[in-house]
Computed example of a mutant assay.
Amino acid sequence: MSFFKKLKEKISGQTEAITNKFKEGLMKTRGAFEKVEDLVRRYKRIDDEFYEELEDILISADVGVNTVMELVDDLRNEARKQRIENAHELQPVLSEKLVGLLQGKDEDTSLNIEDGRLNIILFVGVNGVGKTTTIGKMAHMLKSQGKKVLLAAGDTFRAGAIDQLEVWGERVGVEVVKQQQGSDPAAVIYDGIHTARARKADVLLCDTAGRLQNKVNLMEELAKIKRVISREVPDAPHETLLVLDATTGQNALSQAKAFSQSAELSGIVLTKLDGTAKGGIVIAIRNELQVPVKYVGLGEKMDDLQPFNAEQFVHALFATSIEKEMEQEEE
């Protein structure tokens, strides 16, 4: 059975709505990866020039130079091992390698949420990446799953951040714990924990200031917040999610590297994936940081924050090729 057929069968158990969300959300990025399909059509036999063009295409999609070099070397070895000479036969191998890179080994991309305890999720990231919007959407998602959710407005630095979170709180129908602008963020999170306990909440989502990775004092503030959380709830935070804007490409990778050095990240949320042709940055971030991508933003609607799924992602990138391959196999 071909890899494309296996991939199709794997995602067949998932709802058509989710499959369509990935297809629609990755429309711009798919345009970049369609160049791979064109490359495969133009080359009957694989040679060095083929690999060079493939490298250029993947780098232009922001897969990242280091990741591309590793990936293409791996493809060369696999082609020799399987004695693949036809470029068409190499495309499903590329897809399989991409799924492997995105999944990692035995990696759990679900949120670490358990019944019977207060689950604390800390959100970090620079300004403008969609952090507050992501918190609002996740609150909506968790509430729709029957969880009692509270928000803590720990971004006391940016003007309007508290108001923005309150708007989301009203929209979703969840309580927001806040203090005045300029208050100690750690004190807000502390209040949030005690309020969440009093309300018997299941999940507390904590906003933080949009820290610039080169601001030492702000990184120290983040460390103080984590100390307060772990003191009040010894096994917390249960998740520390870094929110990145996919449209910033390699800059998102730079931010991810800086934050991974300053905070123990448990996962990545990549926003605005529907707004970029360079969605390959997902692959670069996952491969270079070895931190799982847990959620992706595929649109502006309340339910457009989706759990990341490597098979759905790759299926969406090569949807045209997969459908053609399936048609040929059925004939």
Rank of each mutant, 00 (worst) to 15 (best):
K6L: 15
L7T: 00
K8I: 13
K8C: 07
K10T: 14
I18M: 04
L26F: 02
L26C: 11
T29F: 01
G31I: 02
R42M: 14
F50L: 06
I57F: 12
L58W: 07
V65C: 04
L75P: 02
R76C: 03
N77C: 12
Q82W: 14
H88V: 09
L94N: 09
L94S: 10
E114D: 14
G125K: 09
V126M: 11
G128W: 02
G128A: 01
K131W: 04
G136N: 03
S144R: 14
G146H: 07
L150P: 00
A153M: 02
G154H: 11
T156Q: 06
W168K: 04
A187W: 04
V188E: 07
G192K: 12
I193Y: 13
R197K: 06
A201E: 11
D202G: 10
G210H: 08
G210S: 05
L212C: 10
L212V: 13
N214P: 01
N214R: 12
K215T: 13
V216Q: 15
V216D: 15
L218K: 08
E220F: 12
K226S: 06
S230W: 14
V233S: 11
L244K: 04
A246H: 11
N251T: 11
A252G: 14
L253E: 10
Q255G: 04
F259G: 09
S260P: 03
G267W: 01
I268H: 01
K272C: 06
G280S: 14
N287D: 03
Q290G: 11
L298Q: 05
N309W: 02
N309I: 08
Q312N: 14
F313E: 15
T320P: 05
E325L: 03
M326S: 02
Q328M: 09
E329M: 04
